[in-house]
Simulated scan of single mutants.
Amino acid sequence: MFRFAFHALIVLILTLLTQIGGIAYLAAVAASRASGLRRFLAKLAIFLLCYAGATFAASLAAPIFGRVPLSCVADAADRLVVRSPIYCLLNRNYVTPEVRDLAKALAAHMDREFPGTVTVALDANFPFVNGFPLLPHLSHADGKKLDFAYYYKDVDGAFLNGGTRSPIGYFAFEQPAPGDELPCKGRNDWLTTRWNFDALQPLFPAYRIEEQRTSAAIGWLTSEGVAKFGLQKIFIEPHLKNALGITDSHVRFQGCRAARHDDHIHIQVE
């Protein structure tokens, strides 16, 4: 009974983390038993082979279900990059073709306006099944959502091309200044993903948002992104929206139960 519960827990965790990892694990368990393997390293190798095969198969099958992968393999000429290979390893890099085209068009626009600028993508969606949660996000479940990193500069004001404060692009928050709008002040929701990670903040470098490029990107999203690609919403924190002078109604607050959005920009299409 314990062994069954242990395997079931691993399947659950791998499925929640990668969508297809649970299936790969079950295939690896079956293959290990059929071949009589007992050593841990041999079993791990079988799982990694099964997972790699499932991931490759997912990239081929996803277009049938209306999703395509954003590539984590970039060269020096690419202007749209995924922040870390971990997004592809966990199958979190899938979007609809419309969102992919929007992301590429944004990156091309930023390169034209600010030659050489790299636009950094973060979490997208899993390859299959509308409604399957991409934890800890509340809405990345249909291929129509994508997060971008902000554009950053160092403490001396020099632009950090392709750089982010966090190694994965998340959880390094821009703290509001005294007097800034704080829509969640005083709330203590017990069921929420609005985590502050106060203990982590001193570990991140003191980069700041590069206002010119960030404003230009949001300006393009709220104009060309809306008109040509069906962009519906952008989520950023109110204190950043005010600091950047953004008034467009497509830029909204995501609510107090969702994750903070002063470490990334969330976009979604209709």
Rank of each mutant, 00 (worst) to 15 (best):
194 R>C: 09
117 T>C: 12
196 N>I: 10
180 D>G: 05
186 G>S: 07
170 Y>F: 15
193 T>F: 15
178 P>G: 01
199 A>P: 03
202 P>G: 09
222 T>H: 07
191 L>M: 07
214 T>I: 07
154 D>N: 15
196 N>S: 14
175 Q>Y: 11
123 D>T: 13
118 V>G: 06
192 T>M: 10
152 Y>V: 05
185 K>C: 04
211 E>L: 11
218 I>F: 13
134 L>A: 04
147 D>E: 12
157 G>F: 12
157 G>H: 09
115 P>Q: 02
128 F>W: 04
183 P>Q: 02
163 G>N: 06
126 F>Q: 00
168 I>P: 01
129 V>I: 15
126 F>C: 05
122 L>T: 04
181 E>T: 08
176 P>W: 02
129 V>E: 04
185 K>H: 09
194 R>M: 13
217 A>N: 04
219 G>M: 05
190 W>C: 02
135 L>C: 06
182 L>R: 05
136 P>A: 06
177 A>D: 09
173 F>M: 08
151 Y>F: 15
203 L>Y: 13
162 G>E: 13
160 L>C: 14
156 D>N: 15
194 R>H: 11
122 L>I: 08
180 D>L: 06
221 L>S: 04
143 G>H: 03
164 T>I: 12
207 Y>P: 07
192 T>D: 11
191 L>F: 14
185 K>D: 14
219 G>V: 04
184 C>E: 02
118 V>S: 02
188 N>Y: 14
220 W>M: 03
160 L>M: 14
139 S>C: 10
216 A>H: 08
196 N>M: 13
165 R>G: 11
167 P>L: 07
193 T>S: 12
181 E>Q: 05
218 I>H: 04
213 R>T: 07
116 G>S: 03
138 L>K: 02
206 A>Q: 15
140 H>A: 08
125 N>P: 07
120 V>T: 15
202 P>I: 06
148 F>N: 01
161 N>F: 10
120 V>E: 04
150 Y>G: 03
151 Y>N: 07
146 L>R: 00
144 K>E: 13
159 F>D: 09
136 P>S: 04
194 R>K: 10
170 Y>I: 14
115 P>N: 02
124 A>R: 00
159 F>T: 01
142 D>C: 07
176 P>C: 05
121 A>L: 12
206 A>C: 07
199 A>K: 08
155 V>N: 11
225 G>H: 02
198 D>E: 15
